[in-house]
Nucleic acid binder design. Sequence first.
DNA 1: TATGAACACGAAACCGTTTTCGTTGCCTTT
DNA 2: AAAGGCAACGAAAACGGTTTCGTGTTCATA
Lengths: 366, 366
Amino acid sequence: MGFLPDLGSELSNFPLKIVKQGLNIWSLKAKITLKDIARELEVSISTVSKALKNSEEISRDTKEKVQAFAKLYNYKPNNIAISLKNKRTKNIGVVIPDIVHHFFTTVIRGIEKYANARGYNVIVCLSEESFDKEVINMEMLANGSIDGFIMSLSSQTQEKGDYNHLKEVTEQGIPVVLFDRITHEVECDKVIIDDELGAYQATNKFISQGKKRIALITTDDYLSVSKARTKGYWKALQDSELEADESMILKMPSMEMDEEAIKNFLNTKNPDAVLCVNEIFAVYSMRLVQQKGLRIPEDIAFIGFTDGVLSKYANPSLTVVAQHGEKMGEVSAQMLIDKVESEAEEETYQTRILEPTLVIRDSIAH
Amino acid sequence: MGFLPDLGSELSNFPLKIVKQGLNIWSLKAKITLKDIARELEVSISTVSKALKNSEEISRDTKEKVQAFAKLYNYKPNNIAISLKNKRTKNIGVVIPDIVHHFFTTVIRGIEKYANARGYNVIVCLSEESFDKEVINMEMLANGSIDGFIMSLSSQTQEKGDYNHLKEVTEQGIPVVLFDRITHEVECDKVIIDDELGAYQATNKFISQGKKRIALITTDDYLSVSKARTKGYWKALQDSELEADESMILKMPSMEMDEEAIKNFLNTKNPDAVLCVNEIFAVYSMRLVQQKGLRIPEDIAFIGFTDGVLSKYANPSLTVVAQHGEKMGEVSAQMLIDKVESEAEEETYQTRILEPTLVIRDSIAH
DNA sequence: TATGAACACGAAACCGTTTTCGTTGCCTTT
DNA sequence: AAAGGCAACGAAAACGGTTTCGTGTTCATA
């Protein structure tokens, strides 16, 4: 504290004066404000504000005094007041269907990392795959709480095809970045991985290894990602000499796993390779065929989507199409913050397509 | 709109007047404020504010006019302004070490559900097990962004034993709820599960099944949970006729898994039962012993902690001590919000201890 | 000696609400 | 007719900052 000029006497009795409205006299150190500093140092609020910002307008002496005082009493500007003034909250809203899901979790981590580095906080809201919750959450946040949205659509929203809540928000000038589960009906930035390509490559992998009866276990088509993956699978088969057979595709009606359906499917179809749109379907299927005495990958091989813990620790470990959730989060956050901070009112939106990669593990030959 | 009295002419030309500072004349529907309504309806801001709150002070006529107008133009109060006025943000800050971790993920979901139901939003920050990040995140949020904290300590913080950032925050009157990874050095509400009991019961389960060489794979003691679990394990052995043997405990130095260490440990110690403080250690160990040709659970049985996807889909499925993360989240949120909203300055803090339950699966006999 | 920068600081508006405390005008009462 | 009461509304402060635009000194210059 060597640079506290002649403050000695003024500082000493300060604590008494500053205790606010008499509450909690004892230990509660109330937050100090510009006003408090101004009163104690007998200068104006504007001077204090400028001094703390090292403004040229203020003399060295005053600046030192103010800064020393602020440091001593641990002054920190009130975020809310700044937000109100700047109309910038430095918060970004993330609305996702589910958080107990490895993929979304990694995306959040990516968003968090990037956003934090740029001084933003992340408000997470869960739609729980429900359209109504998605709408309510967005409305709550859209009234000043956040500077922009990063979101992945709930399955119900994609099923309904109703995107008015998104349109309203963008019309208000709030930037939106959609990732993974997107729609083309809303004009905004988007980040996806090339699901079609991922499925295509995975299926080709099977083909190149001489697999003939390649099955697909997926969910209903209203989920944009499932649709794309089915397309890639289909295309790979058509590009090959194998015949694409619709009956080799099992579509689960919901996200929940119908164990019986899978069991029947595998028993009747007897595939020698199975592509699954997530880890769970794949790991569960592997257990089923192991119980039947089949060897993996010799008799039947598996590839899943999402490179989560399950894949890594399954027995045998599961080959997957990695979606790079963390990268996706980072890219989304970057696109959003760039847009938020750009003064220009560019009406240009881009869609970034990330490349999936195949993570080879023991569920296929290698 | 049957109750729009004689507004016709006034409303019709409103859109032109209200466009703000000339930006984006076309489609950007700027948010409307009390001021705008007041101007257009030629009443004062106070009147508008009161009318929208259905105040007795305002005449029926005026109230109807104002409310109809507000509805028509989709008026929504600005959260930030309200926060500044009320000194309540309706945001709660959640600081956790990691989000790509099933347990924390379920806790967040619990917090989210409960908080949302009470009109709160959740700001999530990740400490990534780093002390510094924990401090920075808390400081960012403590300046007005949130009404209270829910947190679980980073391993580095627990290792260091430095809790000044927590103390500062509580001294400022910001309520804190600590869950799972807690410390007794900070006076605040806490929620934990009875880790000691969980480990005790799990170990007893092994003993009752006639297991003799019961091992424990854990992390270093600075993690409060690991310490408690080790204690429960030890106690169960001491309460039995078996001799508790320190060499049957493997302490991993970090959260990361040292595969070699586990392999050596299992090979030299030849346990017939293993208790692991998480899923990953357990699932990985199961794979190792299966490769050696041992049968689970006949030759060697396993119990882990955390009822996540891994346990459910492992082969064989893993018996675990369930931590009820979602419940923990709900309870934490409830305690925090109750404290935030209670006017009373009670200086009474409580620690809620949740009971763990054993989820029996195929990794032990049953 | 009058002029005019340059310097150092303060007043006040503003962000969008809420809320207290007037201030009208009108009606009732004696 | 004066007094009082009430209904209906507005002015203004407050929340905690930022920022623009003065304004009063001081000092060098013509």
